[in-house]
Structures are given as C-alpha cells and as structure tokens.
Design a protein around this nucleic acid. Structure first.
Lengths: 217, 217
DNA sequence: TCAATAGTGTCTCTTAGACAATATTGA
DNA sequence: TCAATATTGTCTAAGAGACACTATTGA
C-alpha cells in the first residue's frame, strides 16, 4: 500500500481578454514540486475551512489574484497516482472569465512570477498534467460560448455590441457575421441598451449596453 | 480542525431502457451510514489499486453489477462537510448506459436490494445528496443525446431505426418526427445497415442496423 | 467631403417540423 | 383484402450565412 489518502487539490484556468485575444493566467511556481515550472494557479483543499471544492477554488484564486470571481465553472476532475510527484492525487478543475484589469496578481510565497499566455499555445512546458487540464478548460469555455452563453464577465460595465462580438470571436476562435450576431443579441435577455448612452469616436457613435441583473454566465 | 483528509468516493448513475422507458439503477444500502435507504451505487477510492477515479467507478460497478461498462462519462464532483455523515467528503459522479439484460445486479455485503427506478421521479427518498446527483446525471445524459450523441449502448447488437428513435425519445423525454430522425441517421457514421437482414413481424420488415466499430458514445 | 464604424435590409440555402403518400409484409 | 408498420416525399417556416446598403459621426 502506497498511500492511504489522496492529495486533494483544485486548479483554476482564469481567462481574460487582452487586446481582443483570449489569454490564460499562469504562474511560475516558487515551491517544490515543480519549482520554477509554469502551472495553472491551484491549491490544496482545507477541510477545516472550505465548505466545498468551489470554496477552495474561490479561496485559492483570491489569495493569488486578490479578486472575488463572479462565477466559477467546474470542468472536470483529474486523478491518478502519477499526475503529481507527491503521490495519488485528485484535482478538480475550474475556469473563470474576468476583465484583466480586475486581476491584481500577487507574487508571494508560492508564486515567483505571473503572466498571461495564449491558452491554445502557451509556449511553455506546464507542470503536472496542466497542459491537459488547460486544454479541457479551453474546450469547456468554448463549448459554453458556442452554445449561446455570452462572455459578459470579461467586458467592462458598459460595452458596445461590437465589443461583445469581438469577445465571442476571441473565445471561440471563429469570426462571426455582424448582422447575424446583432439579430441574435436582440433576443438575448441579458444584454440591455443603456438609454441615451453612446461610445463616441471618429465615427458614428455606438449604442452602449449593460448586463442584466442576475446574469451568471 | 475537524478532519485532515476528506473521504473520496465515486457514485454511478447506471441508466437503461425498460419497456422503452428510461430507468436508473438504485440500491438499498445494507450498511451504515444510511442503512436501508436507497442510493446510487458507489464506493470508496482505493489508492493502492485504482489508477484513477474512472477505474474506481469501473471497479465499483463491476463489483455490484458484474458488468464491464463500455463507457463511463464523468458528470461532476460534489463536495462538502455535510453531504456524508462520516464527514468532509468528495464524490465524483459518473453515468453509464447499458441494455438491462447485461446487468446482473448482485445483492451482497453492502447491498440489500436492487431495483430500477424512473430517474425523473424515483419515488424514494435517496440517501446523502444522491437526489441532486441523480438530477445532474440525468441532465448530463439528456444534454448529450440532445446534442446529437446516440444512445447506442442501450440497444441490442442489431436494431431497427424505430428502436433507436424510441431510445432517443425515452432518454430525452421528447417525441421525435420519424422522417426527420431518419434523415439525420443517414448522415450518421455510427449507424450502419446490416445488408440483407431484417426484423420480421406482422407487417413490412424493418432494416436492421448495427453500431460502427470504435463507437464510444 | 471623406474615412471609419454603426446599424439594417435582403437574398439564398439549409434544415427542422409537420404530415401525407407509398411500400411491404403476415394474417 | 386488411391491419400494421416501414420508408419516402413534399411543403412550409425559421434561421444562418453572406454581403450589400444606409446612417452618423469627427476630422
């Protein structure tokens, strides 16, 4: 018998939009195991204080980015004896979507460095099985948006329909038709025009919109 | 501090078709906790022998139904200090779909009785948070089939398109148009006609079909 | 006036949905 | 022949996709 209890952890793929391109937050580990390697932010369950793995994820993300996420989505649970060198482990994977300016990442005990990467090609070898986890999270996020969910959490409070379209395109990786997109947004209860408010620029002003109250994802 | 390590378990919603209606396998527990209550079949992770939670699920299901499932699908992971009276616990939920004649459920140490129930209204109070878990599993199964996946594992080796349509209807709970359904099956690479084989009866014979090799779900 | 982007109109093509029509068997 | 079910055909409506057109601003 190798081990009586598995190591129980949580990992989070935190996505954002940078310059209209989808990015994921990765950290450079400042502790063993995998010291110096890049990884998804994650942490160990604390049964004495966490009310569930969702709470673990919120706590972990708060401690590393100082941000309370409006909505975390569970993706999958990975497990096995070999995915973490410390032994038999379980990791429940979450993702979240935030505007990058809300994220004030903090280097500290467990983090040496923090950066945003292209989730479909991070160009780093990731620690543990995090490359696989990241693929899973990206797929889940894309499926969600392709199924009609709107990535509204990644936008500022007021935004134009063009902003929203760019966000959808960045997440799914596919370009959308303007007319089709706008037709569909008309039937969308979560996207409301702000009467009389426009974004001005060197062209025709664009109607500003806001998220309806109670929107979750 | 209440507890250092959480209890790590797996629960499985095993679905089948009985008389063209969707059913789920429930067991009456023969052990504490919740002795005598109905529950989804489940079991505890054994790190010394399981290669992952998927393997735990396969082992648990094998020990209780003597069946090797062709495909298990992970639904979600529930967790918290109160969902199991033994303390802080984690349960990863799976579902599977099988023809009922392949299931030879076995009463034993941990099972007093076994039966098939209507998953949308089991008419029993379920142990732990299994009522919630069952809802989750049913939703996941329905979404899968509504998204175009075919419940082929629930059918016998050779089947008619009408059989397949009934299976889809039973899973999703919605009735489908015959012509539409058949049109769609023509474009489905997993459903192949068996040349020259028909199901006979007191009416026009029906072409028999089989599942293409390599079909997973 | 022009450049630039917002916002709308329109045509085509695909496909779901509804339902009718035809086909083929055993009794 | 009839009952029963298999299998196919047809019409309509809704919606996606493509693309052009109009609208409104600042410079």
């Amino acid at each position: 018998m190798k081990q009586l209890f598995p190591l129980v952890t949580v990992d989070i793929a935190l996505f954002t939009l940078l310059d209209n391109r989808l990015r994921v937050l990765l950290i450079k580990r400042a502790n063993e195991p995998s010291l110096g390697a890049w990884a998804l932010p994650g942490g160990i369950l604390r049964p004495e204080e966490d009310t569930g793995l969702d709470a673990t994820a919120v706590r972990v993300l708060l401690s590393k980015t100082k941000v309370g996420v409006p909505h975390l989505e569970q993706v999958t649970t990975a497990s096995g004896p070999d995915r973490d060198p410390r032994g038999w482990s379980i990791s429940t994977l979450y993702y979240a979507l935030l505007p990058c300016d809300k994220v004030h990442a903090v280097a500290g005990d467990t983090i040496e460095e923090i950066a945003w990467f292209d989730p479909s090609a991070p160009r780093r070898r990731l620690a543990f099985d995090h490359a696989t986890l990241l693929k899973h999270a990206l797929l889940a996020l894309r499926r969600k948006v392709e199924n009609g969910a709107l990535p509204l959490h990644v936008l500022p409070e007021k935004f134009t329909l063009t902003d929203l379209q760019r966000a959808c395109e960045a997440v799914t990786g596919r370009s959308l038709d303007k007319a089709v997109f706008r037709r569909q947004m008309k039937d969308q209860p979560w996207v409301l025009p702000v009467a009389g408010e426009f974004q001005r620029g060197p062209q025709r002003p664009a109607q500003l919109y806001r998220v309806a109250d109670g929107f979750r994802f």
